[in-house]
């Protein structure tokens, strides 16, 4: 681990100043924020992240850890712990897909440490990215190539890839937010703003090192999830190599509004399969206004992978992903959806 300066400002104003400071001897190196540390410290130990200045947000941002539901919007503080949100009664009963996406992620210890904001910004688990002894990784060192293309790529993405990077976005919670059209609140040197959660992550294209649309020094403070006729009938299905404490091979967040078996609205997001949090818009369009049954679900699942590009070792993800979509849709349709 490279040596770093550490500070723990007590006020948000001070945090924002520290967060935008460039360290004098290295114009490139701005400060990096520390929340739960479960991504950052891991990657600092691996020398993949090499911040010269770590700004610990845990004193100044504590106020952004509340969980509130007023009947129309769920507001989640970005510094709430994954475990706290997963166990929150309002989240469990009104937004089951959120509770499930969190409780099926990582381990109990990690969920006690990790924050929602940090979770959304977790980095890929691509083994070449995580190991700097591989020279070629466009995400770690732009322009160096991609060791995973033509390498071992069983865990890599089949959707949203480019010829420069095929790294999977592994987060679970993000898929629930995609499905529910969440927004995020930010604060930074230029003030406060909000954006749709769907605009946070960037596809790799030819700049895989640019992962988000956050501006330098910006902090995610809150996540806003609108209530809707689909939020209670929602579910997260996660397919893994082992039953627990494992990233998804494929996962599906589904939110459904039904009249009888007729789909009035449906939202589908896919995890473990794409380079960013991923909404399966075409599959949704195909189902709206139709009866939900195994045949229509299967057709939708195929549509979701129409643009998929497989590598040498990950073609199986397409069929696993399709089965996961069918299962998620049928299980969600079978849920008792409580009103109000």
């Amino acid at each position: 681990m490279q040596p770093f300066h550490y500070s723990r400002p007590v006020s948000l104003a001070e945090t924002i100043v520290s967060g935008t400071q460039k360290h004098s001897r290295n114009a490139e190196a701005t400060a990096t924020f520390l929340a739960g540390g479960t991504t950052l410290i891991d990657l600092m130990k691996l020398d993949v992240m090499r911040p010269s200045h770590v700004v610990d947000l845990n004193s100044s941002a504590r106020e952004f850890s509340a969980i509130r539901f007023d009947g129309s919007t769920l507001r989640l503080g970005a510094f709430a712990k994954m475990a706290t949100v997963a166990d929150h009664p309002d989240v469990i009963s009104h937004f089951p897909v959120i509770a499930q996406s969190l409780s099926l992620a990582a381990s109990a210890q990690l969920r006690n440490m990790a924050t929602l904001g940090g979770n959304l910004l977790q980095r890929t688990r691509c083994a070449y990215f995580r190991d700097p002894s591989w020279a070629a990784c466009n995400k770690r060192s732009p322009g160096s190539g991609c060791a995973a293309i033509g390498g071992v790529n069983r865990q890599h993405a089949v959707l949203g890839t480019s010829k420069h990077c095929i790294a999977t976005y592994h987060g679970d919670f993000a898929q629930a937010l995609m499905a529910l059209d969440a927004a995020i609140m930010l604060i930074g040197p230029d003030g406060a703003r909000s954006m749709p959660f769907a605009s946070l992550h960037l596809q790799p294209g030819n700049t895989p090192h640019l992962e988000t649309s956050l501006r330098p020094g910006e902090i995610i403070t809150e996540i806003l999830v609108p209530d809707g006729p689909w939020t209670r009938r929602s579910r997260y299905v996660k397919v893994r190599d082992r039953q627990s404490y494992e990233f998804a091979v494929a996962s599906v967040a589904v939110a459904l509004a039904l009249e009888g078996s007729m789909v009035t609205d449906v939202r589908i997001a896919l995890g473990g399969l794409a380079t960013t949090p991923w909404r399966a818009v075409d599959a949704e369009d195909l189902l709206r206004g139709r009866r939900l049954n195994e045949a229509s679900a299967t057709e939708a699942a195929r549509t979701a992978f129409a643009g998929a590009v497989a590598q040498a070792h990950n073609a199986f993800k397409i069929s696993v992903g399709q089965s996961a979509i069918v299962r998620a849709l049928l299980e969600t349709a079978a849920m008792e959806a409580h009103r109000g």
Partner: peptide, 15 residues
Amino acid sequence: GAAPLIARSEPVAAA
């Protein structure tokens, strides 16, 4: 600009 979000906003001079 962000006033409604922030409970405590001391002046920045501390840093």
